[in-house]
Each structure stands twice: as C-alpha cells, then as structure tokens.
C-alpha cells in the first residue's frame, strides 16, 4: 500500500528520519509507534505530502507521490486535533471536503453513527472537543479511500464514540482497505493492529507483524514489547556515549527494508 524507500529528513541540525524504509501491507492495520519526538508525525506528513523528504522515494497504492497530489485520492486523513475555522458550520466543513474531492464514492456510515445531521447547523467554534473530534473522524472516513491515516484517532472521544470508531476501523480492514494508525494507547492498538512499525530517534527499529514482535521480545502484550524496545534503545544510547558509532542493540533487526508486503 505504502512503500517508503530510504527516506531521510533533517530539520536544521536534527535528523528526524534516517533512511527509513518501510512497506505497509494492503488490507492490514499497521500501528506506527515510538516515543514522543521519534518522527512518527513527520513520517505521516511525508506520506501525505505535507512535508517533503530530503532523500528517498514514496509510493502510495503504486503511484509515486508528487506535488500535484492526485495520489492523495487514495488517502483519508484524520489529524491529531482538528481546528476547523470557528465561524464555519459543521455542514460547511463537510460540504467543503466533499466538493474538494468530486466524484469520489461517499461513505456516510460514520456520519450517521455520529449524527452529523443533528449538528450540521452548529458553528464549529461552539462544539465541544469531543464533538469536534467526531467531525474530524467523519471527514477522514467520508469516502472510500484505499488508505486511512489516523493520528491518535480516539483522543478526546468518549468511550462509546471511540468504540464506534474502532468498529469502523475493523470494518475498513474487512473491506480490504489499509489503515496506518498512531496511538499512545497500546492496548487499543493491540486489538486493532496486524503489523507494527517502531520508530525511535528517526530510525525504524522494528517493522513486522505484531505476533513477530511479541515472539522476538518475549513480551506478553504489545505494551510490554514496546516498553522493552524503548528501554533497550535507551540503554544502547547510554552505552554509545564516547564511542564513534552507535552500538547496535537490536541485532535481530536487519537494516534492510523490513517490509511485509
């Protein structure tokens, strides 16, 4: 679905992404995890074309990513927090996105589940954070793109709405579409994700099926496994102080593309 090949990105003196090569499987839910500042958001923005990589190539659904942005027809995006213009009505926002993507098949399941008709005439500025997040989710799921990119999708949602959303993610997967999702809630990812990609300090430390990660680390849960990875990464970094080259602390990870296409 997504193929990233040796993606590099620097912001000033900071290497945000270093030679990230990753393949996201079609029809699977891939969890993108890593500590804060590990480069998850940058990676997502590169996939969306919001940020340009300094080096490397990107294909989405077989199409090369370019500035014209037509490849983004394949993508539905739900950012971490939605800040729609305060003086637009909910209906204005939904109509705008609909008209920006003319001719795409509409999926109004989530809109109905979240009762968008009931709040169409409300100004965005008057909505609660949770309701804004529902609108945000509806915008992402309005069409039937082959890839959904969800950045902390359940943040701010009440448990019921979060469940609705998770069900929707499962439904999308059943339809053979792909999902790239980030979250801090590992238990949530565990019930959703097929694959996991772990980023740390701009490097991809692991990419593969969740089961494989669990077996490698011996962890009982995704949370344990990721925590273990983060711990050993930190230890490795400490060990690296004073040496010219960072010490490889995860010998089972090959530096080659670890894709599971």
């Amino acid at each position: 679905m997504i193929t990233l090949d040796t993606i590099r990105k620097r912001f000033g003196a900071l290497d945000v992404l270093q030679d990230v090569s990753l393949a996201v499987r079609t029809g699977a839910v891939t969890a993108l995890v890593g500590p804060n500042g590990s480069g998850k958001t940058t990676l997502i923005k590169i996939v969306l074309g919001l940020t340009r990589a300094d080096h490397g190539t990107l294909h989405v659904d077989g199409q090369p990513a370019d500035d014209a942005g037509a490849y983004r027809r394949a993508i539905g995006y739900m950012p971490q927090a939605a800040h729609f213009p305060a003086n637009l009505r909910v209906g204005d926002v939904l109509d705008l996105v609909t008209q920006l993507r003319p001719g795409e098949a509409v999926d109004d399941e989530l809109a109905r589940a979240y009762d968008m008709d009931g709040i169409r005439d409300k100004f965005v500025g008057t909505l609660s954070g949770g309701t804004r997040q529902k609108v945000n989710a509806v915008v992402a799921f309005m069409f039937r793109p082959s890839l959904l990119i969800l950045d902390e999708p359940t943040a701010g949602l009440d448990p019921l709405s979060a469940n609705v959303l998770k069900e929707k993610i499962r439904a999308v997967r059943r339809e053979g579409r792909s999902v790239l999702i980030t979250s801090h809630i590992m238990t949530e990812l565990e019930t959703l994700a097929d694959d996991v990609a772990f980023l740390c300090d701009g490097r991809l430390r692991f990419a593969g099926p969740v089961a494989e990660l669990l077996s490698h680390t011996g962890g009982r849960s995704l949370e344990d496994a990721i925590a273990g990875l983060m711990r050993s990464d930190r230890a490795g970094r400490r060990a690296a102080v004073g040496t010219a080259e960072p010490v490889p602390v995860l010998p089972w990870l090959s530096p080659e593309p670890t894709g599971v296409a």
């Binding site: 923005k45 969306l48 074309g49 919001l50 500035d67 014209a68 942005g69 037509a70 490849y71 983004r72 027809r73 993508i75 995006y77 950012p79 927090a81 939605a82 800040h83 729609f84 213009p85 996105v97 920006l100 993507r101 915008v139 990119i149």
Partner: peptide
C-alpha cells in the same frame, strides 16, 4: 497561524498546493 491545522487538513486532500 490560527488556520494552520485546517490548512494541513486541506493539504492532505487531493488538491494542488
């Protein structure tokens, strides 16, 4: 500045910059 997140959402749609 205030429109920043909304702009990002629009940039993620299939439209030219």
């Amino acid at each position: 500045y205030a429109s920043r997140e909304f702009v990002e959402l629009l940039l993620a749609q299939p439209v030219p910059r």
